[in-house]
């Protein structure tokens, strides 16, 4: 059996203490345990402020201020230096954010090619066009983000995440700013990725996203648990 794609052991994370607040900051993650198989599609739900995004940042090596063990694609993040973590993010992890996070000064194609600025991705131009094709925006490669709709921007962000054909995609509320129809299109893209064997971890509020996932977890009081009400069985009410 291969290594899990993601593995968290006894992960604790505190908010940094505020300047006028005595003592350490509030604890956000309290001994999180998680194991995600390669090719699995996991949705993580939880209340606002429960630490879902923080957890995603830990998984992506963007936040190094934690205790416990975080293994991503077989590598213990704490043992990696900044360059190695950056390389991991660049080549093996694709990020998708709720607010798209495109650079407004770059065209759609240039945004998709952004990871290539930091390492040599073979055949990047062709891959970028293929990724734009995949998300249905090949015809808008020259457009600036400001000229695109919310759904189109999110699809550009998804194309950027796919440029290096990473084995792991981490998405933070990817449909949060989209209308139902556009959001559905994005979910279908995730499903296609899952079908191709990409590991997906999506933090979401939305039941329809959770319904697309193969496993749903709930982050509550700093710990991950399997929800008592299966969202896959109750399409009209997502866990909030």
């Amino acid at each position: 059996m291969s290594d899990p794609a993601l593995e968290l052991r006894a992960v604790h994370k505190r908010y940094p203490a505020r300047p006028n607040e005595p003592g350490p900051g509030a604890e956000l993650l309290r001994g999180v345990e998680l194991s995600v198989r390669r090719g699995e599609f996991v949705a993580i739900e939880g209340q606002s402020g429960s630490g879902k995004s923080t957890l995603l940042h830990l998984l992506g090596g963007l936040d190094a201020d934690y205790t416990g063990e975080v293994r991503v694609l077989g590598q213990e993040l704490r043992t990696l230096d900044d360059a190695a973590r950056s390389a991991l993010r660049n080549r093996s992890i694709g990020f998708v954010f709720q607010s798209f996070n495109l650079l407004p000064q770059l065209s759609a194609l240039e945004n998709v090619l952004l990871p290539e600025a930091f390492s040599a991705i073979p055949d990047a131009q062709r891959r970028a066009m293929a990724a734009l094709e995949e998300v249905g925006l090949a015809g808008k490669s020259a457009a600036r983000p400001g000229e695109l709709s919310g759904g189109e921007r999110q699809r550009i962000a998804l194309a950027r995440a796919l440029l290096a054909e990473p084995p792991l995609v981490l998405a933070d509320e990817p449909t949060g700013n989209l209308d139902a129809g556009t959001g559905q299109g994005v979910i279908e893209l995730f499903q296609r990725l899952h079908a191709r064997g990409t590991t997906l971890v999506i933090v979401t509020h939305e039941v329809r996203v959770s319904r697309a996932a193969s496993r749903v977890l709930l982050l509550r009081e700093g710990k991950l648990e399997t929800p008592s009400i299966d969202p896959l069985q109750t399409p009209s009410e997502g866990i909030r």
Binding site: G60, L62, D82, A83, S86, A87, R89, N90, R91, F95, F97, N101, L102, L103, L114, P115, A117, F118, S119, R160
Partner: peptide, 16 residues
Amino acid sequence: RREIGILRAVGATRGD
């Protein structure tokens, strides 16, 4: 700040 965060997310090192 957000732009810097994006660059780091797609693989920029501190040096970059």
